[in-house]
Design a binder for these strands. Structure first.
Lengths: 249, 249
DNA sequence: CGCCTCATTGACTAATCTCAAATGGAGTGG
DNA sequence: CCACTCCATTTGAGATTAGTCAATGAGGCG
């Protein structure tokens, strides 16, 4: 079939994710692995990107989870999105001078620094890969919009169900989940800050969903007890994750 | 001072808005006015862009207000953003095949169709203008994020105050508002769908803000009775609207 | 063991929604 | 000009949802 060396290259989460969108040629895979030079580690509690930062640096997550959030004057915070292995982070702050939000690790993280120069060279040399990166960026934007809809018009239980299904779909792309469930390092406090709820209410909602036989989230493990039922309860339509790719380039 | 012909060119909302970011040269202004060929009109109730649409078309609003939204299975809807004169709309659906939301006029609208070809030619020929367009797109994205924070972590009154202040800031850029207030064609139903509230509650919140002497919204007119007080009540920090421009290009 | 943090539960409170009805313009046809 | 309709706004009352405060468990770790 394929050259074993290529198979190795294909084994980064980013490569797996992008492969789900376009068939990447060996040259493209080489370029992907090239983005993974300059590997760095971040401990929980450190900051990867912070509000007002003026460097032009982005990362690709190789392993671990992170979250991007904004802090409000009152001290509360809103998590805008979670970053999973294979996701970019701070892509916009490479293009624009200052970041308007923070990003920090949820688990220990390994990430590769990507500079503006790296990105431009990828765009110039491997158009298919560039298209795939744009696709990924656009998907991230669509997720933020869907998240906004969550907060505006869905009940706490729907939000939770929808969120867990979205995480599942994203993790499947990088081989970290299947229809049964996935390992999830998020505390109920993090869920609360992402879903616009209190931690106490998150706990109650999770209990409800569990007692209804839909999904169990315990000890860092999400288990779908009734996948179709959960999709139904969340009115989850994954179209926003599956949009077509860019025409440009 | 400046050539009168240039002054005329400068008089589109888009030109005014972009001028607030970069000093546009005459050639740039010409390119802007060139984007305004192919003028079209849309009546209230028509659709400018719809979910699943596969054309690659975007618009620049010349006059009138529009809104982009998503409809949920239950029939409720969430407005993601409003488009004001000078704003792009569907910029992403030029780059990506399908749109994942709808856009429709709130008032009668005049808009100019912008094709992928137009956009690419602008990017190739007038780099400063291209930078300004990217800046505008990035600002729009930052607004969606701020909107998400609104829905997740601010009370109804804070949300409303924040929203009115944001609208004000945006309209000022195109000369349609000042510190005193602005004309606003939004019904309380539209406000409700944007802020994730019921129309009834929107009404009550507006009454509260009025009785506290902060802001009056009646008969299509928003009047800031106490601008600084409102900024305080909303903990409005316009940094997200003022971010620096793109480095690229 | 003692000290964390996170999860869990109960009782009470506050915010917001829903239902229902009244009000008030703006336009329309007679 | 008037009667009528349509639609947005306004207000009240009661129901629901979610938040707050407080206490208790349960597991991990020095």
């Amino acid at each position: 079939m394929t050259d074993p060396a290529i198979l190795t290259l294909q084994d980064s989460p980013l490569a797996r994710k992008l492969s789900a969108f376009v068939r990447l040629a060996p040259a493209d895979l080489l370029a992907v692995s090239d983005l993974h030079r300059r590997r760095r580690k971040f401990a929980v509690g450190s900051e990867m990107i912070y509000q007002g930062q003026t460097d032009q640096v982005a990362f690709v997550l190789a392993s671990g989870w992170a979250c991007s959030y904004k802090i409000l004057p009152g001290g509360t915070r809103q998590i805008v999105d979670f970053q999973l292995p294979g996701d970019f982070l701070g892509l916009r702050s490479v293009l624009f001078r200052t970041s308007d939000h923070n990003v920090e690790p949820i688990t220990p993280v390994q990430a590769s620094e990507v500079t503006q120069r790296d990105l431009l060279s990828v765009f110039a040399s491997t158009p298919r890969l560039a298209a795939a990166v744009l696709w990924a960026a656009s998907r991230d934007e669509a997720m933020v919009v869907e998240h906004l809809v969550d907060l505006g018009r869905r009940s706490a239980a729907e939000r939770m169900a929808h969120f867990l299904l979205e995480l599942n779909a994203r993790l499947r792309l990088v081989g970290m989940a299947d229809r049964k469930g996935f390992a999830c390092p998020l505390s109920q406090y993090l869920l609360a800050d992402a879903l616009g709820l209190s931690a106490v209410h998150v706990n109650r909602v999770l209990r409800e969903l569990r007692e209804e036989g839909l999904v169990t989230f315990q000890k860092g493990q999400v288990t779908f007890d009734d996948y179709d039922g959960l999709v139904e309860a969340a009115s989850f339509d994954r179209a926003y994750l599956d949009h077509d790719g860019p025409l440009l380039i």
